[in-house]
Design a protein around this nucleic acid. Sequence first.
DNA 1: TATTGTTATACTCTATAACTATA
DNA 2: TATAGTTATAGAGTATAACAATA
Lengths: 153, 153
Amino acid sequence: MTKTATDSDIQALSASLERLVAMVRRLTPPSAGLSLTAASTLRSLELSGPCRLSELASAQGITQPAMTQLVTRLEREGYVHRGGSPDDARVVLVNITASGRALLHHRRQARTEALHGLVDLLPAADREAVFAAVPALNLLAELGQTDDRSRNR
Amino acid sequence: MTKTATDSDIQALSASLERLVAMVRRLTPPSAGLSLTAASTLRSLELSGPCRLSELASAQGITQPAMTQLVTRLEREGYVHRGGSPDDARVVLVNITASGRALLHHRRQARTEALHGLVDLLPAADREAVFAAVPALNLLAELGQTDDRSRNR
DNA sequence: TATTGTTATACTCTATAACTATA
DNA sequence: TATAGTTATAGAGTATAACAATA
């Protein structure tokens, strides 16, 4: 029946996303050691392997200087490592360390536990609706990631 | 069939939420004028009406001094107003201004437009799964909000 | 000359500790 | 003495502009 998305559908989704962001922020606040951008950058490195600094910056939607500083902090804490490229001496290849992987693992466990507590409070029907939507939500998030808004920096 | 949530369900949801947060951050970056906390605080004021500074702080999961400063910035920009309580002279009641409401409205429009672009790229089945999950996601977010973790500050 | 990354500088956002004013 | 909020100070996180090194 829902052939195309109506504005009111989109607005409801948008409002829901706003609330979910607030929830996630409370589940793993920056006080837990990593800012949202720092955590997201680590995750990205975990998936991609060694990655250029400029690619990391555009993937996170922040500027190159901001990523330089973030990587400097992450390197100081031992979560990433800066290496050079054999092909191009200008390039810096950033990679996640074992310690960085361990940190991600720990954060995921903590959040999973907290989420478990919340999800268990949901009525069964709602719980199933949420899980049923996970693949679609992943697709949506992926589209948002590869969308080239703010690539032009 | 899904009687209780399995760990792998929860982990998939958790990972999905991480990606959605990254997407939302790119849709309305802090460069658009308001940080996530600032926007969330305004939204909260829009819903609740005049609110004590300490309540705002605990609702957002930040400290009282951080909220003092955020409210100072928002007041300087004209988005909120500080008033006293007639009952208790220690209390500050913060309220949103017409300008603050207008800002929220504008941001919502911008995000809704951007989301529309993404949602239209989803296959119809995924689109419907997302919309079908919205009420459940709202409920989940609400549980996360009223959950009293990090109330003890 | 263009690209990759860093440095310099400034502002937001957050925390903890110490303080003021009121209850 | 306890509570509501502010001030002081420090550090993370971000931006823009100017720079160095390499292609």
